[in-house]
Amino acid sequence: MNNESDHLSDKFIVANVLNGKIQDFALIVKGTEKLVTQIVKKMVFDEDDQKDLLQDIYLKAYQNLASFQFKSKLSTWVGNIAYNTTINHLQKKKIPIYDLETASGNASKETENPEVEAIQTEAVDILTVEIANLPPLYQTLITLYHLEELTNKEIAQITNLPEGTIKSYLFRARQILKEKINQHYKRNDEK
């Protein structure tokens, strides 16, 4: 029922925008802002780049709104544009998107700082730092699954990756996070 009403409301908003009510596009932005923010923010860290990407993503969505066929939720469609645009941006800058070796290297460097370690007493804090050290794609998948509470199917529609691949990346990401949190607590116990 909720999905159906979402679908109807999507249709109504899209029809309004296509009929020239440009102001209604702000409703699309409001409805998808959280998801797009998670995708962009987890993969791109420079604020100017983030702003450029957001403008690029929503302009693409605005220009291609007429081609949206309601086969998925509007938010999933915008999420897909956000994901593809962000991945293209990373590829242009030659930033690896799922290189785990680089990520684990970063992680150990980060946790060697005693000040940072002292602050990270809570599991949530440790995980926030460790997720940030994961490769961009893993960060995005963890965020979409656990924070945005999207299903594997919805994530597959956004990322154009097979559901099996998403499951496998998520599995590996959780495994790394578990190892990192264990390492952290072991170090604290040894002190």
Binding site: E47, L127, H146
Partner: peptide, 17 residues
Amino acid sequence: VQKIEPEGFTFDVSALV
């Protein structure tokens, strides 16, 4: 992981877009 608060942008996304 589920307890982590999703971070937002410091700027107004709607206004920018």
